[in-house]
């Protein structure tokens, strides 16, 4: 999730503190705190599953790159990676690198008329669909 959750939580802490001052306009306070509550709810929901989602997704993307072999081009080496550092920031950095590689692989596969490429393309779409399921949140707006 961008912006990153810790940065948003820090900003919300300041916002809540500012709204604790008695002379804040009630309508402004209501708007600020209502939005803050919605964001805190989303952050709470994302908190528990964030590492699991990233590890699972990074594993799936590495497997896809491994199956792509030479088609993954200069990104092929990413298939051999491991998530040793389990901090969310480190997992997110690895995830961004892998998803960038997935974009490049998708482009390469679309340009390749072979049946192997079609099969790989179907796998890419499956993974993209699963990525949206991993990111589903009950508090999503739509």
């Amino acid at each position: 999730m961008k912006p990153d959750i810790p940065a948003v939580l820090a900003e919300l802490a300041g916002l809540v503190a500012r709204n604790a001052v008695p002379d804040v306009d009630p309508a402004e306070r209501a708007g600020a705190l209502g939005l803050s509550a919605a964001l805190l709810g989303m952050a709470a929901e994302a908190w528990d599953g964030a590492a699991q989602r990233l590890v699972e997704e990074n594993r799936a993307l590495r497997a896809l790159l491994a199956r792509a072999g030479d088609r993954a081009g200069r990104d092929a080496w990413l298939a051999g990676g491991v998530d040793d550092d389990l901090r969310i920031s480190a997992l997110s950095t690895a995830n961004a690198r892998l998803r960038a590689a997935l974009v490049d692989l998708h482009v390469a596969v679309e340009r390749d008329p072979s049946s192997e490429a079609r099969a790989l393309e179907a796998e890419i779409w499956d993974e993209l669909r699963r990525s949206t399921e991993r990111r589903l949140m009950s508090g999503a707006l739509a």
Binding site: L12, L35, A38, L39, T132, R135, G139, A140, L141
Partner: peptide, 14 residues
């Protein structure tokens, strides 16, 4: 402002 985060978090996956 928090209104800038709400669509970023609440709409991208949708």
């Amino acid at each position: 402002e928090p209104i800038m985060v709400l669509p970023a978090w609440g709409m991208q996956n949708a």
